[in-house]
Each structure stands twice: as C-alpha cells, then as structure tokens.
Amino acid sequence: MRQRKRILFVINPISGGKKKTAFNKQVLEVLDLEKFDPTFKITDHANHAFELGKAAVEEGYDAVVAVGGDGTINELGSAILGTGMPLGIIPEGSGNGLALYLGIPLNESAAIRRINRFETAEVDTGVVNGRHFFNIAGLGFDASVSDRFATDNIRGPIGYLRSAINVLSDFQPSMYTLLIDGATYKREAFMVSVANSPQYGNNAYIAPQASINDGLLDVCIVKKFPLYLFPKMVFHLFTKSADQSEYVEIIPGKDITILRDQKGPVHVDGEPVEMGEKLEISIKPRSLKVIC
C-alpha cells in the first residue's frame, strides 16, 4: 500500500466571521483518505499560523492548507517559503483575493476536492521591509482601513465597508516619492498599492493586468480625487477598469522604494503592520508552490 501524504490543515476560527466547527467533518467526508492523511490545528493567537507552518516543515508534512483569509495564507506561505512544500487554500476570509485570482472555489467541498487533485503552480512573492506578501501590500487609505478593520468587532465584507466609510470621512492624501527600477516619481496620492495579483478580494480589481507569476509587481497610484467621485472609483474597482481612470497610474517594476513623510500602517495581504518612512519592496519570482 502506498504511503498517504500528510497534510496539515491550519484553521483560523475567526476569519471572515464564519463558524468552522463542522470543517473537520467536511474534510473527512470529501478528502480522498486513500491518498491523504489529514491533521487539524486551530490558531489562537497572532502569528500562530506561521509557527504551525514552521513546525510542519520540521515534522516532514507533505503540504499545509490555510483555512482562512489572505492573512492566514500570508503567515503559512511565509513559513514554508523556499522549502518546496505546497500550500493549499480553503477560502474563508473577508475578501479571499488570492484564492479568487487562482480560481479556487469559495465553496468548502469544491475547494477540498481541488486538494484531491494535488496540482500545483509556482507563484511570485513580494517583499516589503522584510515582510512577505502574496497578494497586495499598500499604504495610505487602504492601509488605514485595514488598521481600523483589525480592531472592529464585525468581521466580513460588512465590517470592512463600515471601516472604509469611517476612515473616508477625514482621510487626507499624502505626498510620496517612488523609485521604480531606477526612475523617480513624485505623487500626491490617496493610496499606493503594490499588487502581485490583480484584486484585493470580493472581485475588487485594483491592478487588472497584474499577474502572480510574471516576475513583476504593479505599483498602483491612486491620485487625489474629488470625494464626490468616490462611487465612480468604486465602480472602476468592480468592473476591472481601475487602469482606465484618470486618477489611477500603474507602473510595473521589480525594485521599488517608497518614501513618505512619516511612519504609519502598511497593509500586508490585508493585515496592518506599522512601518517607517522608507519602504523597500522587491519580488522573489516563482518562490511559493500553491495547490490550485
């Protein structure tokens, strides 16, 4: 009898505001147990998924699976980066940007069946001040929203929308100096997003042409715009036409430095991280193996 692949499912119990009490049972019903030997662990503190991922590498697991959102994916992906261990995804977050881009079903059973196929693809990894990201990192408005959302007691898209409205009421654009592959740009911007994949999540596309395996990051500069145009900017996001707005400039690059006037939050795959005035950003091509 052939040896079954050992898979560790790392479950974030609060991601997306969804209960996951029946998840283990679902896996045991849908996963091909002739091929796979599943283990389940639940995160209970910040960075716990990263710790569990590191332990899985040391313990010789054949794959780890993030049961959560982009933040859980980020922690697990960062833990196994460069080891050759594949990362599976069961999308259970508020936005599920990376999973949607990779075509991983939002339905639990369908996503588990993808793992049964065990087909993998290599994807790029972004790095900002030593922190890895696989979807999008950003500063300005979206980072402030992520910072507010992190302390909100309402999860999911409704909580995120509430945080966005609260931040929008008194948010001011900032000046940025951007050095992208040797060229210098000075911009007053509402926000700057550095995209490895095209969308934040919930099919909101900030960088419609971005690709997760082209060895490039798309620097998306959303310039200062009249607030009465905010609904139109949102419309562009959900119609994959952000790059057609006169207030959006997208510059692809590999070696990126962003300078700002003061330290503040930067969102890294949706999770807020306090960083300084200088952001050094680069890319590691095809550095993570993902089951998709």
Rank of each mutant, 00 (worst) to 15 (best):
R2G: 15
R6T: 04
S15W: 08
K18Q: 09
K19M: 15
A22Q: 13
A22N: 13
F23G: 03
N24E: 15
K25A: 14
K25T: 14
Q26N: 13
Q26H: 13
V27I: 03
V27P: 06
E29S: 11
V30A: 10
D32V: 01
L33Y: 05
D37C: 13
D37Q: 13
T39M: 01
F40A: 04
K41N: 12
I42L: 13
T43E: 03
D44N: 14
H45N: 13
E51C: 08
G53H: 07
K54F: 09
V57M: 06
A63Y: 01
V64M: 01
G71P: 01
I73H: 01
E75R: 03
E75G: 04
G77K: 03
G77E: 08
S78K: 05
I80D: 07
M85F: 08
I90G: 06
L98Y: 07
A99Y: 09
Y101P: 11
Y101K: 12
Y101C: 11
L102G: 02
A110W: 13
A110P: 14
I112Y: 04
R113M: 10
R113V: 11
I115C: 03
R117W: 11
T120G: 00
A121H: 15
V123D: 03
D124G: 00
D124Q: 03
G126P: 01
V127I: 09
N129T: 05
G130S: 08
I136R: 06
G138T: 03
G140E: 00
D142Q: 04
D142F: 00
D142V: 02
V145A: 07
N153S: 15
I154T: 15
R155F: 10
P157C: 09
G159M: 02
Y160Q: 07
Y160R: 05
R162L: 15
S163A: 11
S163Q: 08
I165V: 12
I165K: 14
S169Q: 15
D170R: 14
S174T: 10
M175Y: 14
M175I: 12
Y176C: 01
Y176I: 04
L178C: 11
A183N: 15
T184P: 14
K186S: 13
R187W: 04
E188D: 12
S193G: 12
S193W: 05
A195S: 00
Y205W: 06
I206C: 05
Q209D: 11
A210P: 01
V219S: 09
V219D: 09
C220V: 08
V222Q: 00
K223V: 04
L227D: 10
Y228T: 09
Y228V: 06
F230L: 14
L237T: 02
F238N: 10
F238K: 11
T239L: 02
K240Q: 08
Q244L: 11
E246T: 02
E246Y: 00
E249M: 02
E249I: 06
D255V: 13
I256M: 07
T257D: 09
D261Y: 10
Q262R: 13
G264A: 03
V273D: 10
E274L: 13
K278F: 11
S282I: 07
K284V: 11
R286G: 05
S287T: 06
S287E: 09
L288H: 10
